[in-house]
């Protein structure tokens, strides 16, 4: 469904993403993990059209969309959430979601009905009339999700929708994401909360210093020495292995 082919993104002398490739198949939930500053959000921005890659291609359903503007990609079925939530602060929850719903619904009545339905689905049904600025962090994350869903995407890009939530809030939202996938939406998610990554993703890509260093099933990736080193530093994998055998 989505192929990212050797995408490189440079900011001046800094190579934020270095020849990274990934593939998301229809119906999958794919995770993108990596230490802070690895370039995950930059790669997301390239996929969603907010940044032009220095080189490489982004292909959606066999079509090269590397040159398309973000709003065109939204029409083609890519929706994204923002890591740093971007609510329309002056609007209430329903109006916020309706902006997304207007993408596929012309009339106000249809868009508002769609917004209400989506709000109920993500657990914002009680807050429709509240100003977006009055929501808690968890509420704002749900709002991000709801707005993206209201565009009726084929591919949903979730940028750390679980970050900043407490464990019970994470438990509440994981089933919501599962339900979205069951409705036929393909999901690519950046996530630090490993509990959620293990539960949700069938395929995980690991980005470190702009390079894709590992990919595979979550269990496999977590034990990959290169991944452990990316997170914990050089030699960490070896020390860990020694500790394991020492205990055994």
């Amino acid at each position: 469904m989505l192929e990212v082919e050797t995408v490189t993104k440079r900011f001046g002398g800094l190579v934020a993403v270095d020849a990274a490739s990934l593939e998301v198949r229809k119906g999958q939930i794919v995770g993108l993990i990596g230490p802070n500053g690895a370039g995950k959000t930059t790669l997301f921005a390239v996929i969603a059209g907010f940044l032009k890659p220095t080189s490489g291609r982004v292909v959606l359903e066999g079509e090269d969309i590397t040159g398309e503007a973000p709003h065109i990609r939204a029409r083609l079925g890519i929706a994204r959430t923002f890591q740093i939530v971007q609510p329309f602060a002056g609007l209430n929850v329903r109006e916020n979601i309706a902006v997304g719903a207007y993408l596929r619904h012309r009339s106000a009545a249809d868009a508002h009905a769609k917004a209400d339905a989506v709000a109920h689905r993500v657990g914002l049904g009680e807050d429709l009339a509240k100003p977006a600025s009055s929501l808690t962090v968890a509420g704002r994350k749900r709002l991000e999700l709801a707005r993206a869903l209201a565009t009726e995407p084929k591919l949903l890009l979730l940028d750390e929708v679980l970050a900043g939530l407490n464990p019970s809030e994470v438990r509440d939202i994981v089933p919501v994401i599962q339900a979205i996938r069951e409705d036929g939406v393909t999901i690519l998610m950046i996530e630090h909360v490993m509990q959620a990554v293990m539960n949700l993703c069938e395929q995980v890509y690991v980005l470190s210093q702009g390079r894709m260093i590992s990919e595979g099933a979550p269990e496999k990736v977590c034990t990959d020495p290169q991944v452990v080193e990316a997170y914990l530093g050089k030699g960490a994998a070896e020390r860990l292995a020694r500790m394991e055998t020492g205990h055994a």
């Binding site: 971007q86 329309f88 109006e95 902006v99 707005r147």
Partner: peptide, 15 residues
């Protein structure tokens, strides 16, 4: 209104 409130978010929603 979406453009007034947040252009980036508006773009992401297909505006």
């Amino acid at each position: 209104v979406a453009v007034r409130e947040n252009e980036e978010a508006a773009k992401a929603l297909g505006v």
